[in-house]
Amino acid sequence: MTEFVCIACPIGCMLTVELKGEGEVSVTGNRCPKGAVYGRDEMISPTRVVTAVVRTDSQAFPYIPVRTDKPLPRALITDLIGDLTRLLVRLPAKRGSVLIEDYRGSGVNVMLTRTLPPEGVSRE
């Protein structure tokens, strides 16, 4: 039995989640159906969208922000952060470009979230 504060909305219901074997999960304490979904997912397969920055070859813009395109299993987050420190992005680079495809077989891609150098700026 585990307790979570629901984050589906600002009310913050205290959820009690119980694993009842064979993938069956009971959620109590939720005021709405969103809480049941959150409690179940958080118990069985907690995932998070990961954001970070990666080094570039530019002096004017030394780092470029990145994100996972989908929530990543929590167990992989620390590895991903470590792997990102070893990469270098060459500018110019475009928002939406995929930096890492299918990270460690998770089906999750890492992509750039900013266009650098910025559009509309003539100089580096």
Binding site: T51, P65, R67, R95, T113, R114, T115, E119
Partner: peptide
């Protein structure tokens, strides 16, 4: 979205 994505 992230901040830069929203802004762009």
């Amino acid at each position: 979205l992230t901040g830069p994505e929203f802004a762009e």
